[in-house]
Design a protein around this nucleic acid. Structure first.
Length: 823
RNA sequence: GCCGAAGUGGUGGAAUGGCAUACACGUCGGUCUCAAAAACCGAUGGUCGUGAGGCCUUGUGGGUUCGAAUCCCACCUUCGGUACCA
């Protein structure tokens, strides 16, 4: 039997799907809806194995849902703005738009070769003005609400990309894209006030029951809510207030010094004219030169100097020295801390180093007599308060509450909540992005572009040199405009928006991608959303997934959508590695999916990538997997061909003896595979169940061939196998389905239901154990009583040998599984 | 440091309290062939034994249980996240 001709078949069905609009979706209230979405790609031109994995998973889920009776939305688009296009422009003197569009057309072709079930009529790309004008519209809406604003601040700057970056885009102190070390710059930039939603973003995480735990944890940590008290310390001479933030107010009687950040505005005032002034100024100078990476690196010794000034601890009026040190950051809390070296490890190390005094205020219940000299590290665990005036004897958790109450009464402190989350810096000094729709007028100030003037189109075919700041600055026709308010000459904003804006709402645009009146049609969005199953890489755990949640909450607040969370279920697929490393051009270890398709076909590639590992796990690409997949498909192909041929020639229907087993295997496969398709998503085991079924059917069909008979049990089993395999290898299954005499697409065929009766066997194999060790097994009728089972077990010859003369203490029976005899 | 996940044959992996190693890959043997490839059939955790068969085995050590890869405790290793966050 010849191998199946995948090139011809795959081409045939891809054309068929396209011509017949098999995957186009419209609102249909008569069916339950299912929105399955994979994170859309950046159009780099070529799809890689990561894409193949991501989109194959999505495709299998989408196709399964279609067969299971759902109205499925499964769209694709391109996240087309961003730096690679611009960098290519600088390097090869190409036009970013042309480059991007060429890349998109390549990628569309490759995606189509994989046979994905996308509704291509909904394709979108973020670089088209029909899309990005709505970025501008949303920005204006945020401006109206005071959520988009401009401020001067110290920002993250990547000198290689020549642009600012959001905090979320700084990874290990470097640029997320090019890993260049980030420096701080003072610039006047646009921000989105994501912090307005910090509580909702945190609380609603609890509702995301179908998200991986680690993504939730990462977002929680990123938002970083901490409960504590802001305490008012006073500078000794000037009586100026220096608030400190602490979560450990229970340790305040142990505060033996204070530390302010080197950037703290009060620092220069309190040192003015004193002996320490020069030393402190020098220290500020040296720390400011250190990059954040260096300053934050863990094992570095904490540096600091005494300021010469003192503070008063408001709880006991103690005079404590004020230090400045690099381990206190201006960005967090109040930029000043009370230092309790006995109960905070950082303070402990610093105090030891600078020989500062310490006082124990929480005693360790295990070693209450512990003395300061014996302290090897700070004691940060729970304990009982000592040396703490009226609070002595309380356990520290109770003391936290009592001290906070007391401070609020005495007006020396108040309960405060601090977040780690900062507003989202969105201006980028780059060309290939959405222009920020704002005009600067000498008279009117910052003027938003009126809605009717949208889009603010990105000028095309301009010179991009990579030098001298934002390319748009040099485009006079773009920059020079008249003020929309007073008509006087004015200038446009030349920064563009961060591209993460584009991806923060594209899932909504997919619901009505051609709408020209609005970002999206509200009714359609409310029908299709939320995304039922979202699939993408873990690298977006914070960035894209947090921003999209923020946008959804904002759009909900202005009544554009009825829901507050965009993604119901989230699957984060693992990376595809090669020899333990990420595939990349520079390492030269890229496996080209197109090459695999040419050699083995898209169906084999789809099987290979799903069978290698469960979707969440990382896996190392191994070419051998392709051979295995190819072999399996040929086995199924031959099996089906044999059945089709037999149907023509078979002389009669006849019971062959394998029916019980075939039915059992078929229905346990239906049960198992349905479970994985619905939400287990362990496609590797779903495929292995199909392999097992195939391994049962191949000998059965051989037997039938020899007798030249066929029966409906075998026929049904094979047709169920083809249906269940079709989401994974759609081309081959469509072809077989047609050859088996069907004239509609297999996508329109109902998913099989399993019959519990077929899973009941007349006879079962029972494992026999002696003292919990397997010694024998026996066949019994399924209906056997417990009494008879025990009796029969004891009669088993092997068991009898093991029991011999020993007294039986106990017999444990697990119905349908085993008998364990304890002697 | 903290948080999280994981550790099973030569390899990818399966089994979430009841037959450890399903399903594949690889390897070995066979059929077919002048030969090879493909395909098909069979074997394949370790160890002792001529054999029947025994014993051991899910990172390590302990515990719970008639029974543990699975639950609990401690430790080791690997990976991921995060980090002077007060």
């Amino acid at each position: 039997m010849s191998n199946y001709d995948f090139t011809k078949i795959e081409d045939k069905w891809q054309t068929y799907w396209q011509k017949n609009n098999v995957f186009s979706s419209v609102v249909d209230e008569s069916k339950p809806k299912y929105y399955v979405l994979e994170m859309f790609p950046y159009p780099s031109g070529r799809i890689h194995m990561g894409h193949v994995r991501n989109y194959t998973i999505g495709d299998v889920i989408a196709r399964y849902r279609m067969q299971a009776g759902y109205n499925v939305l499964h769209p694709i688009g391109f996240d087309a703005f961003g730096q690679p296009a611009e960098n290519a422009a600088i390097k090869h003197n190409t036009d970013p738009k042309e480059w991007t569009e060429k890349c998109i057309s390549w990628m569309v072709k490759e995606l189509k070769h994989m046979g994905f079930s996308y509704d291509w009529q909904r394709e979108l790309s973020t670089h088209r003005d029909e899309y990005y004008r709505w970025n501008q519209w949303i920005f204006l809406k945020m401006m109206e609400q005071g959520l988009a604003y401009k401020k001067a601040s110290s920002v993250n700057w990547c000198s290689s990309c020549e642009t600012t970056l959001a905090n979320e885009e700084v990874v290990n102190g470097g640029c997320w894209r090019c890993k260049t070390e980030i420096i701080q710059k003072d610039l006047n930039q646009w921000y989105l006030k994501i912090t307005d939603y910090q509580d909702d973003l945190l609380e609603d995480l609890q509702k995301l029951e179908n998200w991986p735990e680690r993504v939730i944890t990462m977002q929680k940590n990123w938002i970083g809510k901490s409960f504590g008290v802001e305490i008012l310390f006073k500078e000794f001479e000037t009586k100026q207030e220096i608030p400190v933030f602490t979560t450990r107010q229970d340790t305040i009687f142990g505060a033996t010094y204070m530390v302010v950040a080197p950037e703290h505005p009060i620092l220069k005032q309190i040192i003015k004219g004193n002996q320490q002034e020069q030393q402190v100024l020098d220290f500020i100078e040296t720390t400011s030169k250190k990059s954040k990476v260096v300053r934050v690196s863990t094992d570095l010794k904490k540096e600091g100097v005494f300021t010469g000034a003192y503070a008063i601890n408001p709880v006991n009026n103690e005079k404590i020295p004020i230090w400045t040190a690099d381990y206190v950051l201006m960005e967090y809390g109040t930029g000043a801390i009370m230092a309790v070296p006995t109960h905070d490890q950082r303070d402990f190390l610093f105090a030891k180093d600078q020989a500062l005094s310490m006082r124990i205020v929480i005693s360790n219940p295990q070693k209450p007599e512990l003395a300061i000299d014996e302290l090897k590290q700070a004691y940060e665990d729970p304990g009982i308060l000592v040396n703490s005036a009226q609070f002595n004897g309380l356990d520290n958790e109770t003391a936290k509450a009592k001290i906070a109450d007391w401070m609020e009464q005495e007006k020396i402190g108040k309960r405060t909540i601090f977040f780690r989350l900062r507003d989202w810096l969105i201006s980028r000094q780059r060309y290939w992005g959405t222009p920020i729709p704002v005009i600067y007028c000498d008279k009117c100030g910052v003027v938003p572009v009126p809605e009717k003037d949208l889009p603010v189109a990105l000028p095309e075919k301009i010179a991009i040199t990579g030098e001298g700041g934002s390319p748009l600055l040099k485009v006079k026709e773009f920059v020079n405009v008249n003020c929309p308010k007073c008509n006087a000459p004015a200038q446009r904003e030349t920064d563009t928006m961060a591209t993460f804006i584009d991806s923060s709402w594209y899932f909504l645009r997919f619901c009505s991608p051609r709408n020209e009146q609005a970002a999206f049609d509200k009714t359609e969005a409310n029908y299709w959303m939320r995304v039922d199953q979202y699939i993408g890489g873990i690298e977006h755990a914070v960035l894209h997934l947090l921003y999209s949640r923020f946008f959804t909450k904002f759009l909900n607040s202005i009544d554009m959508v009825d829901f507050k969370e965009p993604f119901d279920k989230l699957l984060t697929q693992g990376m595809v590695l090669k020899d333990g490393e990420v595939m990349s051009k520079s390492k030269g270890n890229i496996v080209d999916p197109d090459e695999m398709i040419k050699q083995f076909g898209a169906d084999s590639l789809r099987v290979c990538i799903l069978f290698a590992a469960p979707p969440e796990a990382e896996f190392d690409w191994n070419e051998r997997g392709m051979d295995g997949a190819w072999r399996f498909l040929n086995r199924v192909w031959t099996l089906a061909q044999d059945m089709i041929a037999l149907k023509q020639s078979a002389t009669k229907q006849q019971i062959m003896g394998f029916e019980k087993e075939v039915e059992f295997k078929t229905h346990s496969a239906i049960k198992k595979i349905s479970h994985e398709m619905r939400g287990g998503f362990k496609f590797n085991t779903a495929i292995s169940a199909m392999m097992e079924l195939t391994n049962t059917l191949v000998p059965a069909i051989k037997q039938a061939q020899e007798a030249n008979v066929l029966n409906s049990v075998l026929e049904d089993a094979i047709s169920n196998l083809i249906i269940m395999l079709s989401p994974i290898t759609p081309h081959m299954c469509e072809e077989l389905w047609q050859e088996m005499g069907n004239n509609t697409s297999i996508v329109k065929t109902n998913w099989p239901e399993f019959d519990l009766k077929k899973l009941e066997l007349d006879e079962l194999e029972i494992v026999l154990q002696i003292n919990s060790k397997v010694r024998s097994r026996m066949m019994v009728e399924a209906a056997i009583s417990e009494q008879d089972l025990k009796l029969k077990a004891r009669q088993d010859p092997v068991i009898q040998k093991w029991i011999e003369a020993k007294p039986v203490k106990k017999i444990i029976v697990i119905k349908g599984k085993l008998v364990n005899i304890i002697v």
